[in-house]
Amino acid sequence: MMGAPTYQAARLVAGTVEQHFLQHQERARLLGEQNLAPVPPARLIEAIIDAAFWASLRREEGHPPKISLAFLPPDFAVKPMLFQKRIPLAPYMLTKLAPGVERPGIHLGVWHEQEVLYVWGTTHAVNSFCFVLDVSEPGLLVIKHRRIGSYGKFTNVAVLKGDQIKIVDEQSASLPDCPELLTTLLGFTSVYAPNDAVNVLVQLAVSMRAHGRGGTLLVVPANSEAWRGSILHPISYAVSPAFSGLSDQMHQSMEQRNLGLWQGALRREIDNLAGLTALDGAVIINNQYELLAFGAKITRAGGSVVVEQMVVTEPIEGNVAEIVNPSLHGGTRHLSAAQFVYDQHDAIALVASQDGRFTIFAWSPCEEMVHAHRIDTLLL
Rank of each mutant, 00 (worst) to 15 (best):
H329C: 14
I45G: 11
L12H: 12
I48P: 08
Q288H: 08
I284P: 11
I148Q: 10
H112A: 15
G214K: 09
E33Q: 10
L276R: 14
R86K: 13
V283I: 13
Y342K: 14
T16N: 04
G15P: 03
I323K: 14
T277C: 14
L204K: 03
P241C: 06
Q344S: 06
G330W: 07
G105E: 07
R268D: 14
A278I: 02
T359C: 12
V17W: 09
A77Q: 03
K96S: 10
I323H: 05
N287H: 15
V39E: 06
H107C: 07
T377K: 14
C130D: 11
M250H: 07
I284G: 12
W363Y: 14
M369F: 03
L259M: 05
L44M: 12
G356Y: 01
F358M: 14
E368F: 00
S240K: 05
P91L: 04
R43V: 10
E308M: 09
W363I: 05
P315I: 06
G152Y: 05
A197I: 05
V159K: 14
V13Y: 03
Q8T: 04
I87Q: 10
I348R: 04
F358N: 11
P91I: 07
G331P: 11
A321K: 11
A70L: 06
L218P: 15
I48F: 07
L261I: 13
L378A: 02
N199F: 15
D376C: 13
V324P: 05
Q171Y: 06
L273N: 04
L30C: 06
I67Q: 03
A293Y: 01
N35L: 09
M250N: 01
G302M: 13
W120N: 02
L380G: 04
L335S: 08
D50H: 09
H211Y: 04
E33A: 14
F340A: 07
Q354I: 06
L276A: 03
H373N: 14
A296G: 08
A226C: 01
E61N: 15
H251R: 14
S56N: 12
L82E: 02
G105Q: 08
K66E: 09
A14D: 02
Q84Y: 00
A337K: 15
P65E: 00
V206Q: 15
V39P: 10
G318D: 02
H20Q: 03
V198T: 09
V312M: 11
E102Y: 00
S56H: 08
